[in-house]
């Protein structure tokens, strides 16, 4: 899959953006030029040399706030995807092997989780467990687990009923061997795609939660929190809310693009797609060469 992947330009675009975002997520605090919490008399100023993103209603530098707010949002999204991956994949794979009772139980739990609405559940969980971003992440991660459950279970089911697994069983393989040797490698690609999608969803939900003031309290900056506090001043100064929005949208678009590209590159359809593109390019070239030779002959 890798050689096909690197030939698609979308892969480079998506990866580039995501690496940048991740960088901000890790080093955001250190990169902020000014103290994100420090106010100044220059309220609602437009972008300038001193304040490249302008200032908000308290004169705080927007750029610094956006950068300082990145870790919570970005790492929160990664945490969500991680929790969802573990909580979904493990029962998903085991449900194929641990017998009908376990299968039934996990399916019903997953059904319940699917039915719960994200924000309400997250709010309830933070009320129960305390108002911290980790608690909120945990609840969102749990609610996203069903996707990973279904993906890993579907892959495991398909593989476990295949003939090569039967052949391995006839050679004396245990269930653990089959899982490790045959199922896991085939589950990785769909899981990767699901993880990209989950991270995107996670980011939006973190932003929504912090917008509502859940998890992280102001004045600590988060992208959602910035939106909440600055949205009211949209008429006066659009830059403060615009930048966090732009970053959220950009990240989610990049994640979805990555998921699409992974899907395209794996499987036969990816090969046909690439071949068709190559043929179109070749046909275009041929036409151009013909046009030039014709022009030369006539001219």
């Amino acid at each position: 899959m890798l050689p096909r992947l690197i030939r698609l330009p979308a892969f480079w675009v998506a990866s580039g953006i995501l690496l940048l975002i991740l960088f901000l997520g890790v080093f955001g605090h250190a990169l902020a030029p000014l103290d994100p919490l420090k106010g100044s008399p220059a309220v609602l100023a437009s972008p300038s040399a001193a304040h490249p993103f302008g200032t908000d209603y308290l004169g705080r530098d927007v750029l610094s706030r956006v950068l300082a707010g990145a870790p919570v949002s970005v790492l929160g999204a990664v945490e969500v995807a991680g929790i969802a991956l573990v909580c979904g994949t493990v029962p998903g794979l085991l449900s194929v092997y641990l017998g009908r009772a376990f299968e039934w139980l996990t399916l019903r739990i997953i059904d319940t989780l699917i039915a719960l609405p994200f924000l309400v559940f997250a709010v309830a969980m933070t009320a129960l467990l305390g108002n911290g971003i980790s608690q909120a992440m945990l609840s969102v991660g749990l609610l996203l687990a069903p996707v990973f459950y279904r993906v890993s279970r579907a892959a495991a089911l398909q593989v476990s009923s295949s003939q090569y697994v039967e052949a391995a069983t006839l050679a004396g393989a245990s269930a653990a061997w089959v899982l490790r040797r045959h199922i896991l490698p085939k589950v990785l690609a769909p899981l990767g795609i699901a993880a990209a999608g989950a991270a995107g969803t996670g980011l939006v939900i973190v932003a929504s939660l912090t917008f509502l003031g859940i998890g992280v309290q102001p004045p600590a900056p988060t992208w959602g929190g910035l939106l909440a506090s600055d949205l009211g001043y949209l008429d006066y100064q659009p830059y403060a809310p615009a930048f966090p929005i732009a970053l959220i949208v950009l990240t989610v678009v990049a994640l979805n693009l990555l998921a699409d590209v992974l899907r395209d590159a794996s499987g036969q359809s990816g090969q046909v797609l690439l071949k068709k593109r190559a043929l179109r390019k070749a046909a275009k070239k041929k036409r151009r060469v013909l046009a030039i030779t014709r022009a030369v002959q006539e001219g």
Binding site: S162, Q163, Y164, E166, A167, T169, L170, A171, G172, S174, R181, H182
Partner: peptide, 21 residues
Amino acid sequence: RGFRRSGTVQYVFQDPLRSLD
């Protein structure tokens, strides 16, 4: 499992495209 691991009896399937990972 023990008997199968002894390898006394082995099986070749019809379609190798399906019986090989």
